[in-house]
Design a protein around this nucleic acid. Structure first.
Lengths: 407, 407
DNA sequence: TCTATATTGTTCCCTAAGGCAACAAATACA
DNA sequence: TGTATTTGTTGCCTTAGGGAACAATATAGA
């Protein structure tokens, strides 16, 4: 049996390299390039990897036999010489992406290239307990499996959870809005489905998704800030990898204190970014009971009252301070603002940027980009899918795949 | 000729692995283990690397031929069976460590194992300009070279500078206390000495030194905070590597805003940790004109006035908030407090720790250590020495060494 | 003191994977 | 149509890590 979870950093305990590891590394290198660029020609793979043509040929053949990639004739011809074969992911290997929320559980089927094939949303009348959530997820996945073609194979399940996650064993330490405490979610879902299960914090997964397939594509130093109804989360990409810390709790960028204000955030910490920038405050000031970010942006494109204006400015100023802090700390290439924070950015980009510059050292401002995130409603599906995909890309010849219909 | 500087992250532009790279990796793995553990037996190397006995034998032979390591008989016998040969760094490969300060320039000769063989301190009557500093350093190095035995070889020069450094080309963007702006220090010193020159921020180098040979040994997720006369700096180790960011400015942990206070730090930013925790404030309150950290700790071990007490508590509280922030952001295994911040820690450890717990999420507090740093006066020598040592350890068979006496 | 056992270094050979070169295939261009 | 260019394929070479047998050197026990 496969373990319920595997370590995201599969840093071997030994530091030496042998031949097998080299082979894995090179197979993995090809898959990672495909993940970044979608479809690539074999000659492009040769250039990018620095390996020999014959080696690439050999590696591609092996990956094809593993059923992970497919080759096709070049469609558009690109110049002199024999046209190179195009390599892309097989669409027959998929993962399940899961996102339990207070009002609904969403499950999607996602390909290795990040395409969301199917997405089903199961509404909850009351906030679901962990066992209810596992049950619902299991049922949805079982249904989706029957709809998959027989030849499809499954790499595993990735779950995005709004809370603090210990990634090594897939335990939800605390998910305040779901009211889950110390829940071994990965183990529970593994026992029900038999599939490998990986879980992580939703904001962390958002940052991975944006790095792989969104506004952060091609960057390796990224600060990602996400504002939702449940507060502010974040993720940091360093050297192309998510910063996880000792146990996976790193990246709580909303719970960082930036002010002496006694106002508390959803975790009870005072003066934090999350305590100062609350979406609900704006909804209250606008006298709207609920709205998604697109609707909110629409409302704010028209003139607002002085009170709303003042609230927005104070929130923008707090966000600017936080961004300044993170630029001083991380010296990123790009800062991505997602969800509600993207709304604030759109509302008064100039104020945000100028305020931010005041609280930042000059050097790390060089060539820095501050941009809204790109991925929309499928953000968490793509991010969660990245969890089981990562170990498959890292060790393609070893990782076990499950049949679509098997038990 | 060697380039004036090399990239610290020599991340090859190509992602494939060939045989030569495997060899480099394995040679490097042995050297990195030696760096961490000092002296190791060949059998211990076999276990740690996971490689075969015969492979270790081969690798050790090559490293011996390169003159980087020496083998010796086991002194203390450890059990049944044939005793294993002991492997340690050759002491005949050295680097120069340089630390320009406002009142003096210090140059040291350091071995690969981190032993400071010689250290000379050249006082300045006035704050030195960059060219004066280069001149002084060049002279000191030339003198030290004549004193080295002929068979010694030099790996390069590492410079620790109090300021913001662009590491890729060794430019000092801003060193406020030295009053240097946009100084191509690495190039200047390379032109005078002919040796490879690497420079970095002093606090970053402190964190590397503590990771390699100090209180952070064996940890891979470290937050390091240093308080000196010139302010507060920091360094973050993530996955065993220093967090540098896009251009090397990452880790400015002192310039992060944690309060609404209008008080400014040495870089003009308001409400930052550095603005709230100033060593000079304490000296003024104590009515002492100057004291090193040991003397300060001595003074504080005796009863102090209520005013001093209050100042210390406010500084400790600010430090606690900052530490809490960094724990939420990085989820480190250990937080190291160096210099003046170590003094604050000793003064009232309990207050610091309890205050810090208030402003931190519970999950990342698991198994977290908060400790004073260990390395004393040789901290920056060891840290700076780590700069030219790093590429040598990464690519031992390729890196060029310079003769002790050559031009 | 001698023997049995355990661990390690050395040597020789094997294996696998990347590199290389020659050739064939498929395009653009004159 | 012929030439230049680029790419895929194939067979062979090189090299570095693994494995097994043997020698060397320790401890433990009779």
């Amino acid at each position: 049996m496969t373990p319920p979870t595997a370590k995201p950093h599969s840093g071997a305990s030994t530091v030496g390299s042998n031949r097998e590891q080299v082979r894995q590394h090179n197979l993995s290198a090809i898959l990672r390039l495909l993940r970044q660029f979608g479809t690539m020609s074999r000659s492009a793979l040769t250039q990018r990897t620095g390996l020999n043509r014959s080696t690439i040929s050999d590696l591609v053949t092996e990956l094809q036999e593993l059923g992970l990639i497919v080759e096709s004739e070049a469609s558009a011809t690109q110049g002199v010489g024999r046209p190179s074969l195009m390599v892309s992911f097989s669409d027959e290997v998929v993962v399940f992406a899961v996102n339990p929320e207070t009002d609904a559980t969403t499950v999607g089927v996602v390909t290795l290239s990040g395409k969301v094939i199917t997405k089903v949303r199961h509404p909850h009348s009351t906030v679901p307990s962990a066992s209810v959530s596992v049950e619902t997820t299991t049922k949805l996945i079982a249904e989706l499996r029957t709809q998959l073609p027989v030849e499809f194979r499954i790499a595993g399940i990735g779950v995005a959870i709004p809370g603090q996650i210990r990634v090594e064993d897939g335990v939800v330490r605390l998910a305040p809005h779901l009211n889950w405490v110390e829940v071994p979610f990965a183990r529970m879902l593994h026992q029900q489905t038999g599939l490998s299960v990986f879980i992580d914090n939703d904001a962390s997964l958002g940052s991975i998704a944006e790095r792989d397939l969104g506004a952060g594509r091609g960057f390796s130093e990224i600060v990602y800030l996400f504002g939702g109804a449940g507060g502010i989360g974040g993720g940091v990409i360093h050297g192309g990898l998510l910063l996880r810390g000792a146990a996976g709790y790193a990246g709580e960028l909303g719970h960082v204190r930036i002010s002496d204000s006694p106002r508390e955030d959803y975790s009870g910490l005072q003066g934090t970014l999350e305590s100062l920038v609350q979406r609900d405050d704006l909804l209250a000031a606008l006298k709207i009971s609920s709205a998604d970010d697109a609707e909110l942006e629409e409302v704010l494109s028209k003139p607002v009252t002085a009170k709303v204006q003042k609230l927005l400015e104070s929130q923008i100023d707090a966000l600017a301070i936080a961004i300044g802090n993170y630029v001083n700390i991380f010296n990123p290439e790009i800062v991505l603002l997602a969800g509600y924070l993207g709304v604030l950015y759109s509302y008064d980009r100039d104020r945000l940027l100028s305020r931010f510059r005041w609280s930042t050292l000059t050097a790390p401002q060089d060539r820095l980009l501050v941009k809204p995130a790109e991925l929309g409603p499928n953000l968490l599906m793509i991010g969660a899918a990245g969890l089981p995909i990562a170990p498959l890309l890292a060790e393609p010849a070893i990782t076990q795949l499950f049949p679509a219909r098997g038990k």
